[in-house]
Amino acid sequence: MVSVINTVDTSHEDMIHDAQMDYYGTRLATCSSDRSVKIFDVKNGGQILVADLRGHEGPVWQVAWAHPMYGNILASCSYDRKVIIWKEENGTWDKMYEYTGHESSVNSVCWGPYDYGLILACGSSDGAISLITSTGDEQWDIKKISNAHTIGCNAVSWAPAVLPGSLIDQPSGQKPNYIKRFASGGCDNLVKIWKEEDGQWKEDQKLEAHSDWVRDVGWAPSIGLPTSTIASCSQDGRVFIWTCDDPAGNTWTAKLLHKFNDVVWHVSWSITGNILAVSGGDNKVTLWKESVDGQWACISDVNKGQGAVSSITEGQQNEQ
C-alpha cells in the first residue's frame, strides 16, 4: 500500500519551488524563494540537514541531481540568471561551476542521460537554452541555442539514451553513436524537440497543441520499447501526452490527458514510464496511469498535502 515514509520539514524561510531525491533515493534536495538550496539525508525516515547551499541571489526555481557515476553533483537554477553546479567532496558541498550566460531568469535545469557524460540543459526566460558539458578537469563547454522559444523557455527534459537502430554493434573503444535529444517548452505555447547533429543542436520537431505557455515537459523514461513519450503541461490547464512510434521520430501524436481548472506546473514520470504525477496551481497532486487499452485514468489524488495517495481503484490493484 502507498505509505508516507517521511515528512521533511525543510525550514525554508520562503516558499519551496522544487524538491528532488537523488538516484538512490537517499538524499533530498529542495530549493526555495529564500535563495537557498538544502540537502537532507533522508535515509530510514530520518532527516539530517547535510548542506545549506547559499550562492544564489534570487529565488531558486529548480534543482537536478546528476547520475552518481560522476559523484554527488547537484545543479540549481535561479531568478538571478545563474546556474550553479554544486559538488560534494569529502563530505562538504561546494560550488563546482557557476554559469552566468543567461540574460534572464533560468527556469529549468536537467541533466542528460549518464551515457552522454556530464551534460546539463538549462532553459531561460531570455528564450535561450544552454547546454553545459563537462570536458573534465573542471572545464566546461557551453553551447547555446539562442531564441529557442520566443519570449522564454520554461522547461527542458532529456530523452532517454537510445541507440539508433541502424547502428547495432559499436566498434569497441569508440564512443557509441547516441542520438542526443531533448524536449523543451516555452512561452510560445510550443513543445520543441532538439537533436544534436554533427555537434550542433537543431530543432527537430515542433509540437503544437497548447493554447498558452507551456510550463513543463517530461520525457518518459524508456524501458526498451520503441515508442517515445513526452508529457507537457501548460498555463491553459491542459496536459498532453505526446507519443511517437516512428523510429525516425518525425510523427508525434498528441493525446489530451486532462484539462485542469488551473495552470498545470509540473509533470513527472515514474521510472517505468507508466504513471504520471501532475501538479499545478490548484495545489493538488494527481497520479495518472495508462490502462492496457491506452486510456489515461486518474488513480489518486493528493489533496493539499493532507492525506496519503488514496483511492487506488480495485481494478488497478488487480492489474498489479
Partner: peptide
C-alpha cells in the same frame, strides 16, 4: 513560480 510539485 511553482508552489507545489510532485516528482517520482
Amino acid at each position: 513560480p511553482r508552489t507545489s510539485g510532485a516528482r517520482f
